[in-house]
């Protein structure tokens, strides 16, 4: 192996260690029996690993329901927020109009307050819309709070696409919307993928609104469900850690599949477009 190759894998290894170490510790904890959780001196590995926590989690708690709800909410949120944000960022990046800067700033102002402060009025709003306790309330709230950041992110990516490309397409008879569809979106796909991940994870982990707008187990999402494992005098470490491990899996697998679109950016597009 060449020296540079060795360094490359060495750094990959370092990176993974850094990223994974706490997660591996969570995993080890999840297969420890209760007796081995609190020990001094510390025991690193369980003497008899058990997957009881995972079994209990699936069988005795509504975790799968939570997961289903989380998936529904996250997928719809991604769809709506991405659609809305792409349109808005196209407007911000490709048009000149009065009030552009203040308008783009208004987007950000919505994010400048702690979410907890907006909880009561939003709760009332959702009640008036009669969508409390349904995934809609969460889809609506998550989309709204994801759009400003996503718009800014995507705008940044669109800006880096040379305008000459759209002009060329327009000369070929493309409308502005046609340019968006055929030129901009394919070229900005790395940014759009990154934004997709951002929205998905935001919705997946969002806790406060999920807690406020849902009261029924049927509509609960994972983060709220996990909190119920921490009681007044009992903390169900087994369920918490098992739940935490499972929670990450769908997103990670999903990303492993879509990450290849990260590179289908300008290189190919510039040649064919």
């Amino acid at each position: 192996m060449k020296k540079s190759e060795f360094f490359k894998y060495f750094f990959v290894f370092l990176w993974l260690t850094f990223i994974l170490a706490p997660y591996i510790w969570i995993f080890i904890t999840s297969i420890k029996s209760y007796d081995e959780l609190y020990t001094f001196p510390l025991k690193y590995l369980p003497s008899k690993p058990t997957f009881e926590g995972y079994k209990l989690l699936i069988e005795t708690t509504p975790f799968l329901t939570y997961m289903k709800n989380s998936i529904i909410v996250a997928i719809f949120t991604v769809t709506i927020a991405l659609f809305v944000a792409i349109l808005a960022s196209y407007s911000f990046s490709r048009f000149n109009f009065k009030g552009k800067t203040p308008l783009s700033f208004v987007f950000l102002v919505t994010q400048m307050f702690p979410a907890i402060l907006l909880a009561i009025p939003l709760f009332l709003l959702m009640r008036n819309l009669k969508i409390l306790n349904t995934p809609f309330s969460l889809i609506l709230a998550h989309s709204t709070f994801a759009v400003p950041f996503t718009t800014w992110m995507i705008t940044g990516f669109l800006k880096s696409i040379p305008r000459e490309l759209d002009e060329a397409a327009q000369i070929d008879g493309c409308t502005k919307l046609g340019v968006l569809r055929h030129i901009i979106i394919p070229l900005a796909s790395p940014g759009i993928i990154a934004a997709t991940i951002y929205i998905f994870i935001y919705s997946w982990n969002e806790f406060l609104y999920a807690l406020t707008f849902t009261s029924d187990i049927k509509a609960r999402t994972i983060p709220v469900g996990l909190h119920t494992f921490m009681g007044e005098y009992i903390i169900r470490w087994d369920l918490l850690t098992a739940g935490g491990i499972i929670t990450g899996l769908p997103v990670i697998i999903f990303f492993m599949f879509i990450q290849r679109y990260l590179i289908k950016g300008l290189t190919k597009g510039a040649i064919t477009g």
Binding site: V12, W15, I19, I26, G243, I252
Partner: peptide, 30 residues
């Protein structure tokens, strides 16, 4: 690091999301 070409890159890129996707309550108590 993730930009480099190496074996198992898709896998490593996926794993790299872990801290981000772990629910904050679990991150905190861990």
């Amino acid at each position: 690091i993730l930009k480099q070409n190496f074996k198992g890159r898709a896998f490593v890129r996926g794993l790299s999301l872990i801290p981000w996707v772990t629910p904050s309550v679990l991150i905190a108590i861990m």
